[in-house]
Structures are given as structure tokens and as C-alpha cells.
Design a protein around this nucleic acid. Structure first.
Lengths: 109, 109
DNA sequence: CAGTATCCTATCGGATACTG
DNA sequence: CAGTATCCGATAGGATACTG
């Protein structure tokens, strides 16, 4: 039992759910599930995401301690993103969801 | 293994993920997890949801076969909503996610 | 390579009032 | 009771162009 409850407005748990429930967060976290990835690498893996949304989503995940950014200090610029331990812990729930989405896509037609 | 892949844009699996990832769908499905509920009952259970959003979310879930609407044909009007089998199947993944949200709310501060 | 900056539209979603 | 109708501001998010 947690002290929080997603049914309550303004509850931290709801805020957390909101974080998860935007168009890209789930896919990005899922995309980092296989290990660290470079920015462009990630963008190419995730079909349809724009620079703006990828950056914005990464910053948001970073500020919530789900993702870590590492500057490789190369020229030209190189940056690597990886899940934090907290991010890894989200991977389980998200994978279950993603797999459900893949398995039941036809049923929702 | 599914024939679908959430990393592909315009893939049915992505559409499904999009359905799940709006502000209210997850909470509404979760709210119907305990069994059928009346409209007002549901609205009171879910803190902060407006008539507009509850109705809209229910219609969306209904059109995707996750929720069933049953008119009780009483006066005054009475309507009951329940999860379909498909909806029930989503409950597992969603519960895992909601519990994660409740458990890690503090870590995301 | 890894972003920013800007513009622009569509939709989200809250508040409020009304109805069979 | 279970919605609908309407208005409106805020945000999401795509396209495009530019930069250290």
C-alpha cells in the first residue's frame, strides 16, 4: 500500500501518471531500454519523432531523474542518453504496456 | 512476437499507445477496474475530471471496444459502464503502471 | 552531431450553463 | 441522472531553418 492514490487530483501519483501519458515519453523510455544510445540513433529508432519533441521529452525525463545525459566531448558533438536506475524500474511496467499495445492492436480497430 | 512494433510511426501498435497515453484514459479504465459503475459514481471517484472529459474519454474507450455502456432505462436516467474483456485485459498492464506511479511519486520530485 | 529558434495550427481540456 | 452545448485560453506538437 502506498500513501498515494492516482484517483486523487493533485496527488503526486497523478502527476507521475501525467508524465508517462504523453505522446512520446513511453516510447522514448522504451527506446532506451536496450542500453545507452546517441541522440540521432534514438531519433532514427523512433519513427515519426521530431527534433523538438525528442529533445523536449528527453529534458523532461531527465528532470524527473528517469534519464541521464552524458556529453562525450567529441567533435562534432556527441551525446549519449541512458536510463537511470529509476528509469530502468519504469521499463518493466512500460514493456508490459507496449507488448499489450502490439498484441491487441487489431482488436481496437 | 507480434507483427507490430511501437517504434514504427503509423503502426497500429503506436495508435494503441496513443489511445492509452492521454490525460484520462488510464485513470478511467483503472476506475472501472473494480466492476461496473454509474456515470456520476465514476466521476466522483476520479478527482478533477470534468463532465466533458469523462464523457469524451468514455466514448473513445467505447469506440475502441474497451468499455461497454448500458442504459438502465430508468427515470431519471441511469447508465452503467463496465470494462469489456479487452478492457479487462488492459487492466493488468495499467495496474502495474499505476502502482509504479504511486510507489515512485517521491523519486520524481 | 546534437541540438535551438521560430512559427503556426489543432486539439486539449476547464468552466459554465443548459436539458430530456 | 447523465449527459450536451458553447466558449475560450493553454498547450501540444509538426515543419522548417539555423548553429556551435
Amino acid at each position: 500500500m502506498s500513501k498515494y492514490d492516482v484517483f486523487l487530483a493533485d496527488c503526486p501519483a497523478r502527476t507521475t501518471l501525467d508524465l508517462v501519458s504523453d505522446k512520446w515519453s513511453v516510447v522514448v523510455v522504451y527506446g532506451l531500454g536496450g542500453g545507452p544510445r546517441r541522440y540521432t540513433d534514438l531519433r532514427e529508432r523512433i519513427g515519426g519523432i521530431s527534433n523538438k519533441m525528442l529533445t523536449q521529452t528527453l529534458r523532461s525525463l531527465e528532470s524527473h531523474h528517469l534519464v541521464e545525459r552524458r556529453d562525450l566531448s567529441t567533435a562534432p558533438a556527441g551525446v549519449e542518453y541512458r536510463l537511470t536506475d529509476l528509469g530502468e524500474s519504469l521499463l518493466g511496467p512500460i514493456s508490459v504496456l507496449a507488448r499489450w499495445a502490439e498484441d491487441h492492436a487489431d482488436d481496437l480497430r
